[in-house]
Design a binder for these strands. Structure first.
Lengths: 75, 75
DNA sequence: TTGTGACTCTTAGTCCGTT
DNA sequence: AAACGGACTAAGAGTCACA
């Protein structure tokens, strides 16, 4: 497993905020996005660098657009 | 090499439009984004599924935000 | 409920070339 | 200038048992 990346961490925190705002558990989000719960966990901790297709599934599961999902995330 | 994906193709076309609007060659964009030219080519043809970090580098190289880069891309 | 390490398999991403 | 191919290494996708 990679070590946390600052950019990915910022993204992960944002995902976590979006998830908690909707009172979802990681497990519920994982189910909706058809992703593994440990994968969600890794994303929220900034350990994963998801692909465009994964981002889209995540956005859909959270009921937000890709632009909302990546709000404030920059290099 | 994978076959083109409809979602990735839409994204690739958008990248190509952004690039051509700025009169950049694939090579110039590749250089700016620090990505391989063949990889840029694959992205524009919908054959590649870039990671979040690559998307950010691409956005920066094109001088657009991530939201602009992914405009209209949905599952 | 979430974090973590370890794992396999696939793909991201690079580099060589030719058309 | 760009498409396309092969071969390659690094890293992401996706899953598991367990803390």
């Amino acid at each position: 497993m990679p070590s946390p990346d600052p950019v990915l961490s910022k993204f992960g925190i944002h995902v976590r905020n979006l998830r908690e705002t909707q009172d979802l558990t990681q497990e519920q989000l994982a189910e909706r996005a058809k992703l593994d719960i440990t994968y969600i966990s890794g994303i929220e901790r900034g350990l994963r660098n998801p692909s465009l297709l994964s981002l889209l599934r995540l956005a859909k599961a959270l009921g937000v657009s890709l632009k909302q999902l990546t709000e404030g995330v920059e290099l």
